[in-house]
């Protein structure tokens, strides 16, 4: 299924790029994200807790950046499975940052997601809805976090030194994948 959307954020494109590749920022903004681990400069592993009605699950995801054109575009591939392969997800993701001028950036995303196993059998139409609402939650969390950091004057933790390293883009892509997921309570 295709999951796409966009949002505007008043953070300049290059700065937004740097924030999005910061694991601390994204781990805080991606709903349900429990842990994040860098495997290589272009790949990450993460665990996301998910829930939809009576279903609760944990997904083990790996994201690999396949192509990048900083600070505009990142392409990546996500693979995820639940323990015991109850469900598997693969997604090819695109993220585009457009400079709107005046320190405003538009983030556009598009993910082609395929789900097999138990999540593939249940409410796929609803999953897209969840994915869209998670995109909105992610945007909201990102704005709140970045504006909080700005007003408090604190430097946001950096775990990746070079802002041009695109590896962290997977975080945003992780979000697209997990959009329909709600944090398990």
């Amino acid at each position: 299924m295709l999951v796409e959307g966009q949002f505007e954020i008043d953070v300049p494109r290059e700065k937004l790029f740097a924030e999005l590749i910061n694991p601390a920022v994204l781990a805080a903004c991606v709903p349900g994200c429990e842990s994040v681990e860098m495997i290589s400069p272009t790949s990450y592993r993460a665990v996301i807790a998910v829930g939809l009605g009576v279903i609760t699950a944990r997904f083990n995801l790996t994201v690999e950046v396949t192509q990048q054109s900083p600070p505009e575009t990142v392409l990546s591939v996500t693979r995820g499975e639940e323990g015991g392969q109850a469900s598997m997800i693969t997604a090819t993701n695109e993220v585009h940052l457009d400079d709107l001028g005046g320190g405003l950036t538009r983030l556009r995303y598009r993910s082609d997601v395929s789900v097999t196993g138990r999540f593939g059998k249940f409410a796929l139409g609803v999953m897209r809805k969840k994915a869209e609402s998670m995109g909105q939650d992610f945007a909201k969390n990102l704005r709140e976090r970045l504006s909080r950091a700005a007003t408090s004057g604190q430097a946001v933790e950096q775990s990746v030194v070079k802002p041009v390293v695109p590896a962290g883009w997977w975080r945003a892509l992780l979000d697209f994948l997990t959009r329909w997921l709600r944090p398990a309570t």
Binding site: V54, I55, A86, G117, R118, F119, K121, F122
Partner: peptide, 19 residues
């Protein structure tokens, strides 16, 4: 531990491996 009532929805989901 889950409650089961008539089972018409729950057992169908169990059969599909969803819960």
């Amino acid at each position: 531990i889950k409650p089961i009532s008539g089972g018409a929805s729950l057992v169908a989901m169990m059969n599909a491996g969803i819960v």
